[in-house]
Design a protein around this nucleic acid. Structure first.
Lengths: 162, 162
DNA sequence: AAGTGAATTTAGGTATTACTTAAAAATGTT
DNA sequence: AACATTTTTAAGTAATACCTAAATTCACTT
């Protein structure tokens, strides 16, 4: 198994912010850009970028900015998947409008286990898009769990017929 | 409006623990009892009890123990409501077994807004019991929100008929 | 190429949460 | 009243997430 990556909530938020910037075509994310978005002092941003760099999630160049590494991209996509799957639950099942759904999802996404997200994902048939039409990245584990579930059901049915 | 009560996640867990003890008939909760349950040093427990006392949620007597105040009971019930409503979602909608549901609910209950909990509560028709049959405390705000929702719907229909 | 102004980083600091150990104090039990 | 146990206090640690002020680097202009 690969080495565990642990992220604090804020680190996660920075990571997904950088990811979104990158998707929009920005080669790098600057300290000031982050500082403005998160309404914090640039010094705070520098600190978090350094932590993300130490965890090998961003390639950080002093005085220049940061871009995600390969595993940074993977982590960001995992987090965005959590966020977007939650949005689906909120909109589809609880009738949230997509803006409120996004806000609420933001406060809990980091705390939700992958298991929970996968359970929602399976319930909605592995959706490919969130309510605002952004991509949801597929998760092989999630599909594997579904197969396991089905096999268990078959076994149970078998037992009943014994 | 009443003064805001803010609780850290751990303070919340201590509060609901004391509540449960009280329901079971225990007049007081001791430092050692808490320390054993949370697997921490008794000194840690003392500290948290003092903080809860400062927030007027427990009546804490040195060397004796703690019991909830009126507002402590209210807060504990709010937290337990969150926890139990989440359990319903996990069990009913996502097919969790009740043990796993409890574990997962514990990791997110504190972070869920009252709005989110109310939305789930309304979806399930203001359930009175969680999957393990524990009481879910009713919330007047939650029912009020439902009435508002219905009135908005009526208005919309009215508009269409204009 | 040097100077300047803006962006960025470093250094040092604060507050909060949640824990620890060790020593002091209170309790209750015989 | 003495002693063992429980509990508290005091002091300290580590992590998170901020800050200010000063130093550094960059980028642009002249």
């Amino acid at each position: 198994m690969s080495i565990e990556i642990t992220l604090t909530p804020k680190e996660g938020k920075y990571l997904t912010y950088i990811y979104r910037k990158q998707v929009e075509g920005d080669e790098r994310t600057t300290t000031t850009g982050l500082a403005r978005s998160f309404r914090v002092n640039p010094a705070t941003t520098t600190e978090i970028l350094q932590k993300l760099a130490k965890k090998n999630l961003v390639e950080y160049t002093r005085y220049y900015g940061a871009k995600l590494t390969e595993s940074g991209i993977v982590e960001a996509q995992k987090l965005l998947r959590k966020h977007r799957i939650l949005e689906i639950l909120l909109v589809e099942f609880l009738s949230y409008d997509s803006k409120k759904a996004c806000e609420e999802a933001s406060t809990i996404d980091h705390h939700c286990s992958e298991d929970l997200i996968n359970a929602i994902c399976r319930t909605y048939g592995h959706p490919k898009r969130c309510p605002c039409n952004k991509k949801i990245f597929s998760n092989s584990e999630c599909r594997r769990q579904e197969l396991t579930e089905k096999m268990l059901k078959k076994e149970t049915i078998g037992d009943l017929n014994d």
